[in-house]
Design a binder for these strands. Structure first.
Length: 224
DNA sequence: GGCGGGATATTCT
DNA sequence: GAATATCCCGCCC
């Protein structure tokens, strides 16, 4: 409904670090001629733009200013920022904070709650249903999202985004972001948020070190 | 269930 | 020319 829509838009005017945990439990629905798939978000990450806060975020695509790729992040909130990476994958963000700023929330994982058959068809390699959207590129794939959806509105067209019921504080955990490397950028801020105990939360290892260690690493080093 | 390595193309330096 | 907000496969515990 329109009121739900405006509630979402109101939320999306806040910085990514505020928006991200509130998007947990929200549902992203995408309809195509093939059918409809809906995903309930269980894991997200916040990326702040340079103008959004005094804390620099080298992990953000917008850290070095506007380029052709990240232009959508600098636009108004309420749109998808979809980028292509590693030569084969797409990842989807929800742009937040007012136009002129460049925050976004990366959709990292979710539970497919509608269109299971179509999602399985799009991701034949998944062996379990909780794998279907377990990871940002998997989630985009399950939803049938690609380059053509960069800049698409969250509402209207073939998309619909609905906030979930507020989660109890204890159900939301946070920690370092995944795959964010680079000097100063790696895991600097605990801006990854997920729903505690949910089986669809991604389990990938953190970013690999940029350079190999100077000496072989012992397999059985003592844990912390 | 975890680790290592390769695939693959767009993007920015 | 290097790096990348990743995923999948094969191999080993």
């Amino acid at each position: 409904m329109a009121s739900e829509e405006s509630e979402l838009l109101r939320l999306l005017h806040h910085p990514a670090t505020v928006v991200a945990p509130q998007l947990l439990g929200a549902v992203v629905q995408h309809s195509t001629p093939e059918g409809t798939v809906a995903v309930r978000l269980t894991e997200v990450e916040a990326y702040q733009g340079p103008a959004d806060s005094h804390t620099p975020d080298p992990g953000s695509h917008s850290y070095r200013g506007q380029t052709a790729r990240n232009a959508v992040m600098f636009g108004p909130p309420g749109h998808f920022y979809v980028y292509f990476t590693y030569g084969m994958h797409y990842c989807a963000n929800i742009v937040c904070a007012p136009a002129g700023t460049s925050s976004g929330v990366l959709l990292r994982a979710g539970e497919v709650i509608d269109g299971l058959e179509l999602a399985r068809h799009r991701r034949p390699v998944s062996r379990n249903d909780h794998d279907l959207a377990q990871g940002p590129a998997r989630l985009a794939s399950a939803l049938g999202m690609g380059r053509e959806h960069n800049g698409a509105a969250l509402h209207g067209g073939n998309f619909k985004v609905t906030l979930g019921r507020p989660l109890p504080a204890a159900a939301v955990l946070n920690g370092p972001r995944v795959g964010v490397s680079g000097a100063g950028g790696s895991a600097t801020y605990p801006w990854r948020f997920w729903i505690a105990g949910d089986p669809t939360v991604s389990r990938y290892k953190a970013a690999a070190a940029r350079r190999p260690p100077q000496e072989p690493v012992r397999r059985r080093s003592t844990p912390a």
